[in-house]
Amino acid sequence: TFEVERIVRKKIVHGNTSYLVKWKNYSSKDNTWETEDDIRTKYGDLVDDFEK
């Protein structure tokens, strides 16, 4: 199971928000862009903290 360590960046393309996710126990080269809906479902607190 993958676990988010932190959110690195945010991008908005054509009105759709995605977050660059750093995965726990993986290197930064393994970071992936994930949709806001996918990340918010399980890691809403991390998204809220990133947006502060």
Rank of each mutant, 00 (worst) to 15 (best):
L46W: 07
E5W: 04
W33L: 01
D38E: 13
V47P: 03
V13S: 09
T32H: 02
R40L: 08
D48I: 09
S27D: 14
K52Q: 11
K42S: 08
H14G: 13
Y43L: 04
Y43T: 03
E5Q: 05
D45F: 14
F50N: 02
S18H: 15
Y19C: 02
D30R: 13
I7H: 00
T32R: 03
K22H: 05
K24A: 07
K52G: 07
K52S: 10
V13Q: 09
Y19K: 00
K29R: 10
K52W: 07
N25I: 06
D37Q: 13
G15P: 01
T32N: 02
L20W: 09
F50S: 03
I12E: 08
V47M: 07
V21D: 00
E3S: 05
H14Q: 13
D38I: 11
L46R: 03
K11Q: 08
R9T: 10
K11E: 06
K52P: 03
L20G: 01
E5Y: 04
S28G: 09
N31E: 07
T41Y: 11
E5K: 02
H14P: 02
E36S: 08
Y43K: 02
D37S: 12
K52D: 07
T32M: 02
R40Q: 04
S18F: 15
Y26K: 15
K11P: 00
E51A: 04
W23M: 01
K42H: 09
T41L: 14
N25S: 09
D37V: 12
K11I: 09
S18R: 11
R6N: 06
V4G: 03
N16G: 08
W33F: 02
V47T: 03
K52Y: 07
K24Y: 07
D49N: 10
E36H: 05
S27M: 09
I7W: 01
V21I: 13
T35E: 10
S27P: 14
T17G: 03
V21Q: 00
N16F: 12
N31K: 05
K52I: 09
G44N: 13
K22G: 02
K10N: 07
W23K: 01
T35C: 09
W23I: 01
D37C: 10
S28N: 12
F50D: 01
D30L: 14
S28K: 08
N25C: 09
K42N: 12
W33S: 02
V21T: 02
E3G: 07
D48Y: 07
R9A: 15
E34D: 00
T35K: 12
T35W: 12
S18C: 15
K29F: 10
S28E: 14
F50E: 01
K11S: 06
T35I: 07
D45Y: 14
S18G: 03
K24W: 06
W33K: 00
V8R: 02
